[in-house]
Amino acid sequence: MASTPLIKEFTKGLVSQNTLLVLLLGMCPALATTTSLTNAVGMGAAVIFVATMSNIAVSAIRKIVPDEVRIPIFVLLIASFVTVVDLSMKAWMPGLSKSLGLFIPLIVVNCIILARAEAFAYKNGVIRSALDGLGSGTGYALGLILVSFFRELLGNGTLFNVSVFGEAFKNNAVLVMILPPGAFLTLGLIIATINKIRRV
């Protein structure tokens, strides 16, 4: 592990081990928060922050944490960072906080964060762990943005709430894309495309 170049720890999370599109982790919030680009960016930023901070914290205290109590400690740290994000969003971005609703608090039980803490940060140094958290969080955010791009564009005719195809399209948009089945369709097609490209 220690011999891989530092930058790899960051980039592996973006493409080859993309948490959402390759490892297929964190699917539930990915289905729920990709109805608009704004939501996806907000959710992605929250995951990046929590993944990076919890990786740093776990890595920093890994030598004094006994194996037997590591999981409660991880959860405690993750929950704290998530609460920080949740309260900050409520205070300074009330609109975004309202539309993301429960999915910010639910980052606590997001498997990506706990998996990175357990599988990586607990065994590696602070800088490597920070890059790993940043990379897997960014990869997840990019996945969300990709999915929400298609869903908002086709389902609502807008990007970041700005009309793209004009009012006529907006009133007759492909409704199913905004609904949960649209999330499955979009995600499935994107993953299929990625698999196709990777095999070639």
Partner: peptide, 8 residues
């Protein structure tokens, strides 16, 4: 305040 389906 509402938490209805976005876009719908």
């Amino acid at each position: 305040d509402m938490k209805e389906t976005p876009g719908l």
